Computed example of a mutant assay.
Amino acid sequence: MRLNGLELVALTGLLALSATGARAQTAEMTFFVTSAGSGKGADLGGLEGADAICQRLAQAVGAGGKTWRAYLSTQATGGAPAVNARDRIGAGPWRNAKGTVIASGVADLHGAATNLTKQTALTEKGEIVNGGGDTPNTHDILTGSQADGTAFAPGEDRTCGNYTKSGTEGAVMLGHHDRRGLDDSAAAKSWNMSHLSRGGCSQDALKSTGGAGLLYCFAGN
């Protein structure tokens, strides 16, 4: 089918408007699930490395003007205090790449009012992340956090050595972005505290339970 001059002009205008709208939504984005992890399992290079992953992916889609933080808690160790994920992400509200509000504030995010689901927990590109029933399933998201967004007590590893391990030792707490699991329990439906990794902190260990080393990223400004 051939288009005449007027039709080509109209089509070009529609495409330009669509692109402008997409850029506007991306500019408003303050939350996303990473489209990729570190590639080294739960070894993210600590919190600094995790934040850098969020910042780099946001920058790639034109949202790098904000300060991005990974939703991760750390455990107290070696004299360094614990860090709570809920204290790193600002006050909200947070919107995904399509402009949908995930939560209006920290309390809503960690309560029944949260709007974090498979359909809303999109990547920085605005894409849906595979969940239960998809191949491969990548719904396990690294959080190292308790359900209220606070850190675990020191002792048994819940953060893969504060995100520096990628071998068979250690474990990290994971959440289900699609809010579903093997049963109907609260843990299976938790976006930030579903279960620990099994078999260590490697990429293969994360894959074995339905993960890919992905993160939640929030803009605090």
Score class of each variant (00 low, 15 high):
128 I>A: 10
128 I>V: 12
129 V>W: 06
129 V>C: 07
129 V>R: 13
130 N>F: 05
130 N>M: 05
130 N>L: 04
130 N>W: 04
130 N>V: 03
131 G>K: 08
132 G>H: 06
132 G>P: 08
133 G>Y: 09
133 G>F: 04
133 G>S: 09
134 D>Q: 09
134 D>H: 07
135 T>I: 13
136 P>E: 14
136 P>I: 08
136 P>G: 09
137 N>C: 11
137 N>H: 01
138 T>P: 02
138 T>I: 14
139 H>V: 05
139 H>T: 09
140 D>R: 14
140 D>P: 00
141 I>Q: 07
141 I>S: 11
141 I>E: 06
142 L>V: 14
143 T>F: 14
143 T>P: 12
144 G>P: 05
144 G>H: 08
145 S>C: 06
146 Q>W: 02
146 Q>V: 04
146 Q>C: 02
147 A>P: 07
147 A>R: 14
149 G>V: 07
149 G>D: 15
150 T>E: 00
150 T>L: 01
150 T>C: 01
150 T>G: 03
151 A>Y: 03
151 A>F: 02
151 A>M: 00
152 F>D: 02
152 F>P: 00
152 F>R: 01
153 A>R: 02
153 A>L: 12
154 P>E: 13
157 D>V: 04
157 D>Y: 09
157 D>E: 12
158 R>A: 07
159 T>C: 05
159 T>N: 04
159 T>P: 05
160 C>F: 06
160 C>K: 00
160 C>T: 00
161 G>Q: 14
161 G>S: 13
161 G>F: 12
161 G>K: 12
162 N>L: 09
163 Y>K: 05
163 Y>W: 15
